[in-house]
Each structure stands twice: as structure tokens, then as C-alpha cells.
Design a protein around this nucleic acid. Structure first.
Length: 586
DNA sequence: CGGACAAGCTGA
DNA sequence: CAGCTTGTCCGG
């Protein structure tokens, strides 16, 4: 472009009649209002809806996304030109989805647009790979059925492989797959690639996804990946909590992916060995026949610790010691995280529990207090009346030493902070060990009750998820996979569900417990905290506000529509307000 | 959000 | 009344 042309470029604020005008959402969370800018002629071919740009605003330069093109700017506003094109951004339909998500999880639009944008600037797209044909063999009838429906929840036992489902979906057209972990996505991506299916693995291959791949796959944020001509959506292990963002806004990739499929009018399949109540409420359940599913769960040994030896408070039953001595690859799980200390009766060994809600209680000024419902009672055992309560607190470090001594084999310890997996056939760890190890002969839960009785409303579901993850490491009954569950609650539905390979038992019990108490998914909840929380919740209308407890409030509404409406109706006071919709840990 | 500008507080 | 803090407004 010569100096002559440059001189004819519009001056700031001048605006030629035929200049295009772009409406831009700026990347300033506090600024909800979009601003209009001129599209300079030399950038014309690079500016589309979704493009990432830099624009002048109030004397500085900010990032933003082109929301709309050729808009009618408000009168009497001198438009400035877009300063720079940063690169490709979210596809137009993802803007609507981001707006929906911002409302659903009471977050800001730019937050979701950032998630839907490439991790590094993308200036051009690679050529789309040519799809010859997807090598899909005979499709499993259940998987085929799932893909014929608008939305289905496919209960795949722990040892089942989701790969054929992904392949069958890919035969329909471009498929979005959301996996619970990047490693899972990576593994599936390489299998697909070996089969000749063009794959984009997110987040790295954002540009490849935008150019058009047959399968776009990744963990949580991949729910926002570009997928031109989307034909199917799959969410693997929908029950996994990692699908939900921990920081506020606490959006869930399962829900985003499902909404995306609904908007695109394409089939959405959620898979899980033990579906969440949320998913059961969302779509139709498809499950293998009882005997098939049962066989795909491992052999389960239940050690009833109360019956075996009521006086024992240690964690090493003879069965466990035998297992550890057997020379097999054994993973022992002991979740020592959580500040709560468990109290056990010194006479009968029973755990001290709340007489109202059944959760474990803590000693507080010589009385027992329930952390869930705040009920108090005298410090005596409910089973035998003894007032001799002992604190039971065991960590993986201690368990490792004990096991090594008892079994006479080297034992390694694995927690969330462990870097390299210890080179030992027997491992003891927190639940992190179940993510770090992918194969074992047996998994033993040293103290399943610490999970079952955790003072959280989702405790049973969360425990079932852990058991399912353990079941995946050891495989089905045919391969000899074993789970050892040490518990004082052998009739608990989680124990029975594992024993019978029947996760519906947990769902039924959970539903019966939560519905009368008004817990999700029968209601919609938000946890509101931070300095301005008091002022904010006081102004909420049409919802139930509970609290404060520890400086935080719980907001409850009959459904998410009502909750989102109420949360959006009140302007946010200045300061750090945290709103966590669908809190998992209450 | 962050700059601009206006209204209020302090000090000599 | 300068010089500074604090508050409110607004951006294209």
C-alpha cells in the first residue's frame, strides 16, 4: 500500500460512508456493553465474527472479540478504527453459547470467550484433512441406539471401552468429544489417528479443529472448541467432578457440551459407569443387560470391620494383609485429606455419627457437633453408650509404614504431591493414586467409611465415582480384577452397588435422600462468598437465602432458570464476589 | 477495568 | 487555596 492510499485512510472518528462497522465485546469483565469500531480497509478480509482484535478504548488498547459486523452505530458517536487483528477466535455460534453459560453460572461473558479462544494467536488455518472413510465396524447395538437419539445417557461399565462409541459417532460427521482428563483425550486421539481418522487434540490443535477435523477431542475446555458442521457430541465419564471448573464461574463441560448439542440439533451422548443424578434427570438412560454389566465390574470383597473385630481401630484386616503379601500389584486408597477427624468409640469401635443425618461428627467443647446439620449431642457412643471416644486420624505416610511392616514387602506412597510413581508393586495413596496408576490386580479401600460418611451432600455419589475409578484399574470379573472394601457399613448402597455391579442402587438411594431435603438436582443452588456477599444476597429476589455460615451464603431456587434470573437481576457490588453455581462440596 | 474529572479534606 | 484523596462516571 502506497503513501497515497495511506493518506486517504479514514481519520480517527471520520468514518467513510462505506466503512464497515464492527461491534466488539471487550475483554474487560466489568464492561458488559459492546462498543462499535470501524473496520479499516486493509483489515477487511481478516475481520469476521469471532475474530480477536485490539481496540482503542478510553485512551488505552484492550483486547476484544468481534461480535457482529455491519451494525448501525449509535448516532453522534465518533467511531475509532480497530487497531489490530490478533487472530482467529470463537465461531459465531459459540458467542450465543457463551452468553448462555455466563447467565447459567453467573459469570462474565469475556471469561467464556477466552475459554473458547485459541491458547495462542492463530493467524491462518491449516488445510482441512480429507476424510476418506471412518473405519467403523459393526456398531455395538447400545452405542448405535444412543447415537440415534437426541440425548442419551449411556451407562458403560468401568471396564468398557468408549472408543467404539467415538468411532461410530465420527462416522456420522464431525464429532466433539469431551474427556475427563487430557491423558484420556490423548490416548483416544492417537487410537483414532492410527485408524486414519483426522483428529484435532485440544488445546494444542485449536487451528486444526477450526479448519475442520473429524473428531475434536480434549478435556474440559474442549467443550468450547471450534467444530465446523458439528454432527455429534460425546461426554466421557460425565459424573467426574473434573468436568466442572473449580474457580468461579463454576461451569461444567458436560452441561456446556449438552447445551451445544441441543442448539446444533445433533445427538449428545453422555457416558458414565455410575451416572450422576443430574445426567439421569437430563436424558434417557441406556444400560447393558444386567449380566453383561455385572460381569464388567470386578470381584468385590467386603470386609465388615465392625463384625470382624469390633475392637480394632486399625486399618489392616487379615484379608488386606494377605492381599498385600500376595505379590500382586495392589493399590491401597486412604483419603486422608479433609480436615475432619473421625471419632470412634473406644469400646465398640463404632464411628461417632450424627443422630439426625448420619454423617460423622466432630468434638466441639465436649459435645459432638455435626458439620452438616449443626445438630449437637453429648459425647457418647450411639451403639453402646460408652463415653470413651478416640480420635482416629491416619494418613498415607503412616499407612505405608504399617503395611510395609505387616506384609514384609516394599510399599510406595502416592499423594497429589508425588512427582514420580514409586517403583513398588504395592502402593498406598490418597484418591490421587487412582488417577496416577492405570492398571492393578486389586484396589483396596482401607477406610471406605471416611468417604461414605464425609460431611458432604454428594458423599455417596463421590464414593461411587472413586469405586468406579478403582474398578477401571482392575478390570472385569473375567480378568480376575478385585476390589477390597473395608467398611463398617457393609449394607451401604455404594458397597452393594459395587458388589452387584449395579450403580442404579446408589442413584435410587441418593434420589430418595436428596429430593425431600431439596438438594440438587431437585433444586438449583449457588454458594455466594466474598466481602460484598452480604450486600449482594440481601438484594436477591425470588430465591431462598440461607446463611451466613463461614461468611458464605447458600442461595436456593426451584430450578436454574429462576436462579440465573435472580442472580443476574442484582448488580454486583464492587469487590471480590464469588458466586459458585452448582457447588459440589457442601 | 482504569483514566478523567469533580467534589471533599488538610494544612498553613 | 494548592495539593491530595476519594468517588462517580464513562468509554465507540
Amino acid at each position: 500500500m502506497g503513501a497515497h492510499d495511506a493518506a486517504r485512510r479514514p481519520q480517527v472518528g471520520a468514518g467513510h460512508l462505506n466503512d464497515r462497522v464492527a461491534r466488539v465485546v471487550v475483554d474487560e469483565p466489568a464492561l458488559e456493553k459492546p462498543f462499535d469500531y470501524l473496520v479499516p480497509e486493509h483489515l477487511g478480509d481478516q475481520v469476521r465474527v469471532g475474530t480477536l482484535v485490539r481496540v482503542p478504548l478510553h485512551g488505552r488498547r484492550v483486547g476484544g472479540w468481534v461480535r457482529e459486523l455491519d451494525v448501525e452505530p449509535p448516532a453522534r458517536v465518533a467511531l475509532k478504527p480497530i487497531a489490530k487483528v490478533t487472530g482467529w477466535g470463537p465461531a459465531p455460534e459459540l458467542f450465543d453459547l457463551a452468553e448462555w453459560a455466563a447467565r447459567r453460572w453467573a459469570g462474565r461473558l469475556p471469561h467464556f470467550l477466552r475459554t473458547a479462544s485459541p491458547p495462542a494467536a492463530v493467524h491462518g488455518l491449516p488445510p482441512a484433512e480429507v476424510v476418506t472413510d471412518v473405519p467403523v465396524g459393526p456398531v455395538d447395538p447400545l452405542m448405535g441406539e444412543a447415537l440415534r437419539r437426541e440425548r442419551s445417557l449411556l451407562r458403560l461399565p468401568p471396564s468398557a471401552d468408549a472408543y467404539p462409541l467415538v468411532l461410530a459417532a465420527a462416522a456420522l460427521g464431525p464429532t466433539l468429544v469431551v474427556a475427563p482428563a487430557h491423558a484420556t483425550a490423548q490416548l483416544l486421539a492417537s487410537r483414532l489417528r492410527r485408524a486414519g481418522v483426522p483428529v484435532a487434540l485440544l488445546p494444542r490443535e485449536w487451528a486444526r479443529a477450526a479448519a475442520g477435523a473429524r473428531v475434536v477431542i480434549g478435556a474440559r475446555a474442549a467443550a468450547w472448541a471450534p467444530v465446523p458442521d458439528l454432527a455429534a457430541v460425546i461426554v466421557l465419564d460425565e459424573h467426574e467432578e473434573v468436568h466442572q471448573e473449580e474457580a468461579s464461574p463454576t461451569w461444567n463441560a458436560r452441561d456446556v457440551a449438552a447445551e451445544r448439542a441441543r442448539r446444533a440439533g445433533v445427538p449428545c451422548v453422555l457416558t458414565s459407569p455410575s451416572p450422576s443424578l443430574e445426567a439421569l434427570a437430563w436424558g434417557e438412560l441406556l444400560a447393558p443387560d444386567r449380566s453383561t454389566e455385572r460381569a464388567a465390574w470386578p470381584i468385590v470383597d467386603v470386609v465388615d470391620r465392625a463384625r470382624e473385630d469390633p475392637l480394632r481401630t486399625d486399618l489392616y484386616s487379615p484379608k488386606l494383609v494377605d492381599l498385600v503379601r500376595s505379590g500382586k500389584r495392589v493399590v491401597c486408597v486412604l483419603n486422608r485429606k479433609g480436615r475432619a477427624r473421625l471419632l470412634a468409640c473406644g469400646s465398640c469401635g463404632d464411628l461417632a455419627r450424627c443422630d439426625r443425618c448420619g454423617l460423622t461428627v466432630a468434638m466441639d467443647d465436649d459435645v459432638l457437633q455435626c458439620r452438616a446439620c449443626a445438630a449437637t449431642r453429648p459425647a457418647v457412643c450411639l451403639s453402646c453408650g460408652s463415653s470413651k471416644l478416640k480420635v482416629r486420624r491416619l494418613g498415607t505416610t503412616r499407612a505405608r509404614e504399617d503395611l510395609e511392616r505387616l506384609a514384609g514387602v516394599p510399599v510406595g506412597e502416592v499423594t497429589g504431591d508425588t512427582d514420580a510413581l514409586p517403583d513398588a508393586s504395592v502402593l498406598v495413596g490418597t484418591e490421587a493414586v487412582l488417577r496416577r496408576v492405570d492398571q492393578a490386580d486389586a484396589v483396596a479401600f482401607l477406610d471406605l467409611d471416611a468417604e461414605l460418611l464425609a460431611p458432604r451432600y454428594r458423599a455417596a455419589e463421590q464414593t461411587m465415582a472413586l469405586v468406579a475409578r478403582a474398578a477401571r484399574l482392575v478390570g472385569g470379573k473375567a480378568g480376575g480384577g478385585r476390589l477390597l472394601l473395608q467398611t463398617r457399613l457393609p449394607r451401604h448402597e455404594v458397597v452393594l452397588a459395587a458388589l452387584h455391579g449395579d450403580p442404579a442402587r446408589v442413584a435410587a438411594a441418593e434420589a430418595a435422600r436428596r429430593e425431600p431435603l431439596g438438594w440438587p438436582p431437585y433444586t438449583a443452588m449457588a454458594h455466594v462468598s466474598g466481602a460484598p456477599a452480604a450486600e449482594y444476597v440481601a438484594a436477591l429476589q425470588g430465591v431462598q437465602v440461607m446463611g451466613p455460615a463461614d461468611g458464605a451464603w447458600l442461595v436456593r431456587a426451584p430450578d436454574h432458570e429462576v436462579l440465573a434470573h435472580a442472580l443476574a437481576a442484582v448488580p454486583r457490588p464492587p469487590g471480590r464476589l464469588r458466586v459458585a453455581v452448582d457447588p459440589l462440596r457442601l
